[in-house]
């Protein structure tokens, strides 16, 4: 799994490539300080081909911590498989989910 970061309208977009699962979650959490600070971010999941419950748990934790500190996390580009996980666990009730990372970042910046 690789993690890339870029800025868009002063917002960090974290793009993940690979699988977000039990074995890769600890590495992912350490990969970027943007995941744990209080700033709003966008997580681009376009390159994620597999997400398990640990991966979902980690996204939920990031959202909780950010929201506790007044920040937010938005998700972008869920493929079919990921959408199924969100559907089954009802995680769609927690996240703002966008078609693409840029619109997520733009609207977050304008808010």
């Amino acid at each position: 799994m690789t993690v890339e970061e870029k800025k868009c309208h002063d917002l960090t977009i974290v793009s993940i490539n690979g699988s977000l699962e039990a074995s890769s979650v600890p590495g992912f959490m350490k990969s970027s300080p943007a995941l744990t600070d209080s700033q709003s971010i966008v997580i681009d999941l376009a390159g994620v081909d597999f997400l398990d419950s640990s991966g979902l748990g980690c996204l939920v934790t990031i959202a909780r911590k950010k929201r506790e500190q007044g920040g937010d996390v938005r998700l972008a580009c869920l493929n079919e498989k990921l959408r199924r996980v969100f559907e089954v666990t009802q995680a769609f009730r927690l996240f703002d989910i966008y078609d693409d990372a840029e619109s997520a970042a733009t609207t977050a910046a304008n808010k």
């Binding site: 419950s53 748990g57 939920v60 934790t61 959202a63 909780r64 089954v88 666990t89 927690l94």
Partner: peptide
């Protein structure tokens, strides 16, 4: 309960649903 932001416990739920 998803609205309370649980960080784990989805595993068996997923298995059961799938």
């Amino acid at each position: 309960d998803i609205l309370s932001y649980p960080d784990r416990g989805y595993g068996l739920l997923l298995i059961r649903q799938l």
